[in-house]
Every structure is written in structure tokens, then in C-alpha cells.
Design a protein around this nucleic acid. Structure first.
Lengths: 155, 155
DNA sequence: CGTATTTCTTAACCTAGGTTAAGGAGAAGA
DNA sequence: TCTTCTCCTTAACCTAGGTTAAGAAATACG
């Protein structure tokens, strides 16, 4: 859907399924920065705005239906229907809020706490994705997540 | 300007000076999530939108002049001048882009690399703030930053 | 100026999480 | 049913960065 090295062509709106946005570190590890579930928008805004090569990959985690809105299409749409500016502003405002809280959870808690919280808040989602993706999203290796889970279910 | 525990009353636009947005971890450490320099907006969007108590603090790092736009004022302004929806959308789009890249730099590089990059890109800013704030922003202790700097200037 | 307070550095020791490696377990296909 | 892949787990050992503590250097202040 998007490969690092190419410019990000569009914003994606998930109708059904799940996308992941990730990048690859110098050491070759995949770092998932965000998932997009139903009714969320996903894009690499840096690349979308500049049309320079992206650092990110976007891939489906499961069979997924998306609406694709290219940046020129978006501009044209907004020129025709200025009322949508408000809609996109509100979408971005909510995304900004979510990003700020993500930073708090990620940098304010240990991995164990992050895992506990995430699996309490999104029990269904934890079932829905492979564990190595959850590890990548939470910011650890699959091995370490496995240890945390073993500890959590023991006591 | 904003204290954790109170709702975030407004967005702040920095006319001159520098603000910092930070939160306090369970262990009592301050974590700076963002600085706002001249011409940047700063707010806790989670709290601004919900009017629930904030997790964040906003403080001036140096003598600073800001424009204050409360959320009701913003709504009123946008109702009067709908063309400004576009302006705020673009501001948020740029902020989203910056946040995504921040995640890449923060989680894709070691602390040493992060420090090198930051001081190459923003040499003036590194002079402008105390080092314990830079450490907090880069995500380490002042002690460790000190070690990295010693190493960097040696070889 | 000199004193006080805040910031920065150094160094010894410690811990959360990473790495490597090997084996187990479920699904998918022949 | 046997094989093959992909995923998950366990365990031994390792490292980036944290903690504690103490002094050095700035900076502010009387």
C-alpha cells in the first residue's frame, strides 16, 4: 500500500479491517507506530505534504477495505465543498490528542504496565493481531513480550 | 500556564520565546514531549476537546509572549470566518507530520545519534535551553546526556 | 565582590529490556 | 498423516541507559 522510498500518494480511510503504519530501524527491526481500525484515516503526512520519499510502510494486517483519497483529490474536494475543511480539522485534532496520550503511555510507563493497560483497554484487538506486531507496537521484542505475558498470567 | 489536574483552557500561539509541554511520570520525572518556538501552536488537545483534567503541564522556558485562544473563542472565530478552518487544518497537518517523524527519530535511533542529530539540526536551540530539559526531551537523564556530550566532544 | 542556589559532570554500581539460540505448537498443504 | 512454515516460548548472557552520590561550575543575589 505504501513502501518506504516512494512518496505517500494518498490518505487511506479504513472501511473494514486493519492497517499498520511502520518504519524500519537502522538495525532492520520493524517499528509499528500506529494501527488504523475501522473509521480511522491513515497517511504519512510528511511525505504526503512534501511528495518526497516516505520513511514508512503501510500494510494491511488482515483482509481490509479502504477508501483512497489522493492529495490532489482531497484538495479538489475541499475546493468544491469547503465545509469539509472542518471535518478534516476535527479528524486531525482527535489524532493529535491520541498522539499526545500515546506519548504519555509509552514514555511514562514500563513495558509491563503498557501491556497490562493495552490488553485491558483493547482485549479484542490483542486477539486480532499476531503477537510480534503487538510487541513492535508496544516497543519491545516478541521474546520480551512473551516473558511479560508469562509473568502476567502466572501471578 | 497549564497545570496537570486542571482542564486545558486554551491553545497558545507563541509570538516570542519558548514554551514546553511536559508530563510527570509515576516515578516523578518530568518528561518534555514538545517545545513550541515562535509561530507554533501548543495545547493539550485531549483536555482541550474534552475539558477533562489534563495530564500535562505547559510552562515558559524563557520570558515568552503568547496569544491565547480559548476553545469557545476558537469556535466563535471559526463560525465567523470559516476560511480559518483551512488554516487550522494545515497547522494540524504539519503538526501530525512532525509527530510522526519525531517517533521515527526517537524510536529508530540510539540516544547518542538522537543527540548528534538534534544538535546538528538545532545548534542554536541547544544553547537556548538548560541541559536537563534537553535530556528530558531526548528521553534520558541529565547524567547520561552529560556522558554522551563528553564522549562526543572527545572523539 | 562573596555567598547561595541551581546546573553540570564523573564514576561506581544496577536493571529493564535486547540478543542469541534452540526447541515447541499450531496451521496449511501434499 | 507427515511435512513445512510461521509463530511463540524459554533461558543464558549482554548492553544501553538509570541511579546514587559527590563534587565542580555556573548563575543569581545580597
Amino acid at each position: 500500500m505504501l513502501e518506504a522510498g516512494q512518496p505517500c500518494a494518498a490518505s487511506y480511510f479504513v472501511l473494514q479491517g486493519c492497517l499498520r503504519l511502520y518504519f524500519v530501524t537502522e538495525k532492520g527491526a520493524e517499528q509499528i507506530t500506529r494501527f488504523a481500525l475501522e473509521n480511522w484515516w491513515l497517511a504519512d503526512y510528511t511525505s504526503l505534504l512534501s511528495q518526497r520519499p516516505s520513511e514508512f510502510y503501510i500494510q494491511a494486517v488482515e483482509p481490509t477495505t479502504v477508501a483512497v483519497l489522493s492529495y490532489p483529490q482531497q484538495e479538489a474536494l475541499l475546493a468544491q465543498v469547503p465545509a469539509l475543511e472542518r471535518y478534516f480539522r476535527l479528524v486531525l485534532q482527535r489524532a493529535a490528542a491520541a498522539d499526545q496520550m500515546r506519548w504519555v503511555y509509552h514514555h511514562g510507563q514500563s513495558l509491563e504496565e503498557r501491556y497490562q493497560q493495552f490488553s485491558t483497554w483493547f482485549p479484542g484487538f490483542v486477539q486480532r493481531i499476531p503477537q510480534y506486531m503487538l510487541a513492535s507496537y508496544l516497543g519491545c521484542t516478541p521474546e520480551f513480550l512473551s516473558k511479560v505475558r508469562a509473568k502476567a498470567s502466572a501471578g
